[in-house]
Simulated assay, not measured.
Amino acid sequence: MRGMMRLKFFATSFSFVAALVLSLGLSMGRAEAASPAEQFIADNVQKAMGILNNTASSKEQKKTEFQNFLLGLTDIQSIGRYTLGQYRRSASPEDLTAFDAAFKDYAMSVYQSYFAKYSGQSLKVTGSNQLGANDIMVKTVTVDPKKPSAKPFEVNFRVQTVNGRMLVVDFSVEGVWIRELERNDFTSYLGQKNGDVKALVAMLKQKAAQQH
């Protein structure tokens, strides 16, 4: 039961961040020039706004464009496989392939179901920290113009260069890193299922179907 509650929290948080990346405006919060990673986040939000604001596109066309955009913005396979923890080593190649597909569909369905809930807000870049040679945390806060006195949410993005291009590999909402949270939930679930990745795949498919 606790694991399912955490999964529900993950879905809400995951979609919240997705909604921000995809459907919110962004303003740079510092006078000096943005770092490459900060500019990467800013530029991609602007691209997403172009997709959302295209009145010539149908709802289904926008969903397809969103999915293609997200797959280009995030290292979705790396995020998914990290969540398997120690069970990744014992999973068969076939099970890993099935998991990759199920995790991608699950993540995309969560994005698509919730992105509209946070329209009208803005995402403000406040700086960045170098976590490693190829690991940068871009710090942002949300701002709701309709509620200027409301406490802003802190949303941070981990950006890494993979095969020569920047990608988002993790993100946090109010200090909770989603990839780590999901790893804990998935490994707990797999522990109850004797490491059966097929069971996790089935569960993710069910969760994705519920979002449609």
Rank of each mutant, 00 (worst) to 15 (best):
G120F: 07
Y111F: 10
A133K: 13
F115W: 13
Y114K: 10
Y106L: 12
M108W: 05
V138Q: 00
T142H: 08
I136K: 02
M108H: 04
K147W: 02
A133D: 15
M137I: 10
D144L: 04
K139I: 00
K151G: 05
P148C: 07
V143L: 04
Y114I: 13
F115E: 06
Y118C: 09
F153P: 02
P148R: 04
N129R: 10
S109W: 04
K146G: 11
P148K: 03
N129H: 03
T140E: 01
Q112R: 08
D135R: 07
K151Y: 02
V125Q: 00
Q112V: 05
T126M: 08
F153E: 11
S128T: 03
G132S: 13
Y111T: 12
Q130I: 14
Y106H: 05
D135Y: 07
N134Y: 08
M108L: 09
A107S: 15
F115R: 03
G132F: 02
K146Q: 08
K146T: 12
K147L: 08
Y114R: 04
S119N: 07
Y106G: 04
Q130Y: 03
Y118A: 11
K146F: 07
S109F: 09
K124G: 00
E154G: 12
S113T: 14
P145R: 09
F153W: 07
Q112P: 01
G132N: 06
K124I: 15
G120W: 11
Q112M: 04
P152L: 05
T140D: 03
V110L: 10
Y118S: 09
M137D: 11
K147E: 15
N129T: 08
V110A: 14
V143S: 05
L123F: 14
S119A: 15
M108Q: 10
Q112W: 05
V125I: 15
Y118D: 14
F115G: 01
L123I: 14
S128H: 06
P148S: 07
P152N: 05
K117H: 13
S128I: 01
Q121A: 10
G127L: 00
G120V: 10
F115K: 03
V110Q: 15
K124M: 10
A133Q: 15
F153K: 04
K146M: 03
Y114A: 05
P152G: 03
T126I: 14
T142Q: 05
E154K: 14
F115N: 06
K147S: 08
S149R: 04
Y114V: 11
Q130N: 13
N129D: 15
K124S: 02
Q112S: 08
K146S: 12
Y106N: 08
I136M: 14
G127K: 00
V141P: 00
V141K: 02
K151W: 06
K151A: 09
K124V: 15
T140G: 02
G120H: 07
P145T: 12
Y106V: 07
M108Y: 03
A116K: 08
A116H: 03
Y118R: 08
Y114S: 06
P152Q: 06
K124W: 01
M137P: 01
S122F: 14
G127Y: 00
Q112N: 05
L123M: 14
G127W: 00
M108F: 04
V110K: 08
L131E: 10
K139R: 13
Y111N: 06
E154V: 13
A107Q: 13
K117Q: 14
G127H: 00
Q130V: 15
S109H: 07
A150N: 04
A150H: 02
Q130C: 06
